[in-house]
Amino acid sequence: MADDHSKATQAAVRERNLTSALQLVLSGSGTATRASIARRTGLTSATVSSLLSGLLADGLVLEGQRAESTGGKRATTLQIDPSRHVLLSVIVQPGLVRGAVVNLLGSEVTSLSQKPVTPGAIEDVQLVVRRLVAATTARVVAVGVQVPGIADGPLIRESVQLGWSDVNLSDALRDIVDAPVHLVNDADAEALADYATSDQFGANQMFVSLSTGVGAAFIVDGSLLAGAAHRAGEIGHVPVLFGPDAPLCACGNRGCLEEVVSVTSLVGLPHGTDLESVDVVALASTQESRERIAFGARVLARALLLVGAALDVPNVVLGGTAPELGDEFIGHLRAEAARHTVRAAMPLSFRYAKVALEQPFRGAAQHALQSTLGVSWAL
């Protein structure tokens, strides 16, 4: 029994050291060497060489060019192999299912989309994954699936937008791809991607995703906040308008935040519209939309004042399709938050996210990478 425990401990230590070495190669962007990894980790040169031999044999790492000489023999640099292993990233929305093959450096290799006949059909997700598998000859390390709902292990506990309840998406994809499937809430995925590519707001920020729905994610001291039941950030179905005239939400309640500040609501589109197929910028410029945008911004700012004060997280990043609403929307948010300052709380700061529009598949891919190999593309 003691020997078994010792072996398990040794295996855990080696796994941790492998992860550290792989992260340093990834973060080094082609400049890491065996000697630099030994210095950074405190491991012996022999241990580092052993670890890297395994990573090289697995095809995760490549030997690169010779590093600059420091007086002795020039060391060989190490880099991630971008061709032999890939990630699949899938974004599920009511009106569109998108997918991409992403290499281990975070670059998109190929992408495709599928417009569902019925919103929330599992078959459309399966078809997209099947097409992605067929589009690459590399080994799929992991699959990241981004959904508008509560992700809990292999289950989507609930997605009002997709009409899902306790859906096991991992089981649905098991016969299609031989790789672990990792599910992630859409706001969480966007927050991870944005945080990894920008240090503008530091380690404490609130990410609010506005598209066909509304969701939030909270990064506190550099870590994503999950909550007691993986439901942190589910603010879309909190009532903010009351009375019989409040708009009816898809969840069955009236006056939910989603019915007031989702981008579809702000520009007057039906619930579940595929926002990729419409000109949000043009729709947002109409007088009717501008009035809805001004009102929605006031409602959202007041809601975020409470959340920001409760969590002591004063930095708000707006993602999803929100950046397409432009300066007017974020200007209203700033003005409303400044108009109602909260005593003893830090004032809110707002900015738009960039990565969700420029690299939409990065968040789910990073979640899959972190969950499977324990490394990330963070700064």
Rank of each mutant, 00 (worst) to 15 (best):
A12C: 13
R16E: 09
R16N: 10
T19V: 05
S20E: 14
S29C: 03
A32S: 15
I37Y: 09
A38M: 03
R40Y: 07
G42N: 14
A46K: 10
V48G: 00
S49M: 00
L52K: 13
S53N: 14
G54N: 10
A57L: 08
A57W: 00
A57K: 08
A57S: 05
L62A: 02
Q65S: 14
R66M: 08
R66F: 09
T70K: 13
T70C: 15
G72Q: 14
T76Y: 06
Q79F: 11
P82Q: 00
L87F: 06
L87T: 10
L87V: 10
V97N: 12
A100H: 10
V102Q: 10
V102G: 09
N103T: 09
L104Y: 08
G106W: 06
E108W: 10
V109L: 15
T110I: 02
S111M: 12
S113R: 10
P116F: 02
A121Y: 01
D124P: 04
Q126L: 05
L127K: 04
R131E: 05
L132P: 01
D152A: 00
L155A: 07
L155H: 11
I156H: 13
S159H: 01
N168W: 02
A172T: 03
L173F: 02
D175A: 14
I176H: 03
I176F: 04
V177R: 08
D178L: 05
V181Y: 02
H182W: 15
V184N: 12
N185R: 03
D186W: 01
L192Q: 01
L192Y: 00
A196Q: 07
D199G: 15
Q205G: 03
L210A: 04
A216K: 09
I219T: 07
G222K: 09
S223L: 14
A226N: 01
E234I: 05
E234H: 13
I235M: 03
H237D: 12
P239V: 11
D245Y: 02
D245A: 12
E259Y: 05
E259Q: 14
V260Q: 07
S262L: 08
L266V: 09
V267M: 05
L269G: 02
L269A: 09
P270A: 13
H271W: 00
G272Y: 11
E276I: 00
A284G: 15
S285K: 03
E288C: 00
R292Q: 15
A294T: 15
V299E: 11
V299C: 14
V299Q: 13
A301W: 07
A301C: 03
L305W: 11
V307I: 13
A309P: 02
V313F: 09
P314H: 08
N315I: 07
E328H: 15
E336K: 01
E336A: 02
T341D: 07
V342D: 10
A344L: 14
L348Q: 05
A353C: 06
V355I: 09
V355Y: 06
V355R: 04
P360G: 00
R362W: 04
G363S: 06
Q370F: 00
Q370L: 00
Q370T: 02
T372Y: 07
T372K: 01
A378L: 12
